[in-house]
């Protein structure tokens, strides 16, 4: 579903991703962990080309998004993204946040879009907030709306960049629960996270990235119980 080959990304002469190879199958849940500044967000953001990259290829459902002639907006309709700081549109209601892209990008009728929005709002348990504005929601609620907004495009892949890092501790669970449910339903997910419990429980594979290089890629059992690299060992000893 996703194949990354030889991905290199530089900011000026600072190489942030170095020859990264990663392959993700349909319905797979992959968690990416690593120290701050290691390039986790950058890697994730390359997957829907929010970041341009200098070399390498990223195939999304068979389409190479390194090809500048490709319709990237079309590809992005299949790839949902959830951000650390939610990035809800503050001037729009919850419902409008969710229906905007289906109406403008997928050219759905308003009725259709509202029906879909209500379906996913129900799924994240916030149907009664449809007409609220983002500022009236708690952090956990905002992130659940952001997930519903991404899901309303009915993507094949969901990218999460530290979706719970900006939340108060008591709100982390409600967001992780929604993500777990998504995983159970067979969504293909790439999750950058510091939630080791989530990675252990939900991930099919955990990827450790350090200084722009993927050092280890294992099932959670192997990853957490038998880490091979010294760097991963010392990282795990700090976070676990």
């Amino acid at each position: 579903m996703i194949q990354v080959t030889g991905l290199t990304k530089r900011y000026d002469d600072h190489e942030v991703l170095k020859d990264v190879h990663l392959s993700i199958a349909e319905k797979e849940v992959v968690c990416i962990i690593g120290p701050s500044g290691s390039g986790k967000s950058t890697l994730l953001r390359c997957l829907n080309r929010l970041e341009e990259f200098q070399s390498g290829h990223i195939m999304i459902q068979g389409e190479d998004i390194a090809d500048p002639t490709i319709d990237i907006n079309q590809v992005r309709t299949h790839v949902g993204m959830v951000f650390q700081h939610f990035n809800l549109f503050p001037h729009k209601t919850v419902l409008e946040n969710i229906t905007l892209a289906p109406i403008q990008v997928l050219k759905m009728s308003k009725e259709e879009a509202v029906a879909i929005a209500e379906k996913y709002l129900g799924k994240v348990g916030l149907l009664e907030k449809a007409n609220a504005y983002p500022e009236d929601l708690s952090g956990g609620q905002k992130q659940r709306v952001a997930i519903a907004r991404a899901l309303a495009m009915q993507p094949k892949i969901m990218l999460f960049d530290e979706p719970t890092s900006a939340l108060d501790p008591e709100m982390v669970k409600e967001v992780l629960d929604v993500m777990k449910e998504l995983a159970t339903e067979g969504m293909t997910m790439v999750v950058v996270t510091h939630e080791m419990g989530f990675a252990r429980e939900v991930a099919d594979r955990v990827v450790f990235i350090d200084q722009g290089v993927i050092l280890e890629e294992e099932t959670p059992a192997e990853f957490f119980l038998k880490p091979k690299h010294e760097r991963l060992k010392s990282f795990l000893s700090k976070v676990l």
């Binding site: 907006n73 992005r76 949902g80 993204m81 951000f83 700081h85 990035n87 549109f89 905007l100």
Partner: peptide, 29 residues
């Protein structure tokens, strides 16, 4: 905030659509 443009683009909106529906209405205020 840059995140507004990124969220809009991640949903498949073009740059022009993101400007029109997301950035300009907020900037105008």
């Amino acid at each position: 905030d840059k995140g507004q443009m990124e969220a809009a683009r991640s949903l498949g909106l073009t740059r022009a659509q993101a400007m029109r529906f997301i950035i300009l209405p907020q900037a105008f205020k």
